[in-house]
């Protein structure tokens, strides 16, 4: 990875798009085991229907992991200072998740140069599923 420098990054710059999926039922079973989130609504169709959902749906944290990959494809993980999202829509089974981000602010805290990026995950025709931001330190 070529090291990204604070001075070479501008507000408005885009992060390279990161696309994940389509999300299969197997992916959800694996993520349940790997993440320790065993909520049956993501893996048990009978339970999902009983809870009033038409089908199982993906863990929000699976998409949050995909968005984290968008960030760590851009900078090494050790430069991450904060990372947060709001889950705005359910991610349906079989969805392909498109992750994008752009630099919205450059600033300095305690002598450390940082950038803030706004990040977004979308499925289907532009349905926003996660909206968030990350704070990243750059030399």
């Amino acid at each position: 990875m070529t090291e990204l420098k604070y001075d070479s990054v501008a507000v408005g710059d885009s992060l390279p798009t990161h696309t994940c999926g389509p999300i299969s039922r197997t992916n959800l079973a694996m993520f349940a085991g790997a993440s320790g989130d065993h909520n049956p609504i993501h893996i048990d169709l009978d339970f999902a229907k009983k809870s009033g959902m038409p089908d199982v749906f993906a863990h929000g944290m699976l998409s949050m992991a995909y968005l984290a990959q968008l960030l760590t494809n851009w900078v090494p993980q050790k430069q991450l200072r904060e990372y947060g999202v709001r889950f705005t829509s359910i991610t349906p089974i079989h969805a392909t998740v498109t992750c994008n981000g752009k630099v919205v602010e450059k600033f300095e805290v305690d002598g450390e140069k940082r950038v803030k990026v706004e990040i977004i995950a979308e499925v289907g025709e532009g349905v926003k599923t996660l909206l968030g931001d990350a704070v990243i330190a750059l030399d």
Binding site: S51, R81, V85
Partner: peptide
């Protein structure tokens, strides 16, 4: 609470040592 009624609203991390 019935677990089938729970949705994840927000999640935020701040980072220290790896």
């Amino acid at each position: 609470v019935d677990i089938g009624k729970v949705l994840h609203g927000e999640q935020r991390f701040t980072y220290g040592a790896q």
